[in-house]
């Protein structure tokens, strides 16, 4: 855990020293704030003090922002040779991946914490369902970790950050959008159920609405675990 902590500290400090993070966060809050408070789908348009509009927009922004944040993490290390630099030090592949992954999780947590003022404003404005809000945050955290692991895998199989971003974005879109779509258009019941189960939306929507089901939690955790395992495979394969 000591090594993982050192790696997280290094990754976070590098990220916080880079202006791109702040630009990304600014864009995030502009979109989130506009959608939440000023758009037709926002709080005032429906006259309802609910975090749902906010959660819905965060969910979509995560699809862009997490591959963007993760795209450099392994692809650039490979490109500039710093992966060799790290892996010739007493660092295990698992520790390296854990360091990178937990940095992404920390990033997701930071974003979610920064949206807490929205929640407190909602409480001030009306009768907000706090249970639902808590579930929503949990859902977004789980979805964020799953997106993060997918993005990390994309970064590990790509040679540069642009291709890492595109691959991560496409893979997340497939899980977020296309599996659900295929499930709707297919006539085969079993296939439809399989694709429906694979769809992130199918598991995230209940959480955003305040319904906690262990199957959804297992889905997100296993999705993250599978992509972290694939990331490990990709790094180990490179060393063979």
């Amino acid at each position: 855990m000591r090594i993982v902590k050192i790696l997280i500290k290094k990754e976070l400090s590098n990220a916080l020293n880079s202006w791109t993070l702040y630009v990304g966060l600014m864009v995030f809050f502009c979109i989130c704030g506009f959608y939440c408070w000023m758009s037709d789908a926002g709080v005032f348009a429906h006259d309802l003090a609910s975090m749902t509009p906010c959660f819905n927009v965060i969910k979509w922004i995560f699809i862009f922002i997490l591959p963007a944040f993760a795209m450099r993490s392994i692809a650039e290390e490979k490109r500039y040779g710093t992966l060799e630099f790290l892996l010739t030090k007493p660092i295990r592949t698992n520790q390296l991946i854990a360091g990178k992954f937990l940095t992404l999780v920390a990033f997701v947590i930071i974003i979610l914490i920064l949206t807490l003022p929205y929640y407190f404003t909602m409480i001030y404005l009306g009768d907000t369902d706090s249970g639902q809000a808590l579930c929503g945050y949990m859902g977004l955290l789980l979805a964020g970790t799953a997106y993060g692991s997918i993005s990390l895998f994309s970064s590990s199989v790509s040679r540069n950050s642009i291709s890492a971003f595109l691959l991560g974005f496409i893979l997340i879109l497939i899980f977020q959008f296309f599996f659900g779509m295929i499930s709707e258009i297919t006539n085969n019941y079993i296939l439809s159920e399989i694709f429906l189960y694979l769809s992130i939306d199918e598991h995230l929507d209940p959480l955003l609405r305040g319904i906690v089901d262990s199957r959804d939690l297992i889905y997100f955790l296993s999705l993250s675990a599978i992509f972290l395992f694939l990331t490990r495979m990709s790094i180990v394969k490179m060393r063979y």
Partner: peptide, 28 residues
């Protein structure tokens, strides 16, 4: 093992002291 690789890859955005501290920490 202390290893200096051929292309000498280093974290360009770190300063010299921070990089050396980072490596010292990794080596416990």
């Amino acid at each position: 093992i202390g290893y200096l690789s051929e292309n000498n890859p280093l974290y360009e955005e770190m300063n010299v002291i921070d990089l050396l501290k980072f490596i010292a920490n990794i080596h416990n």
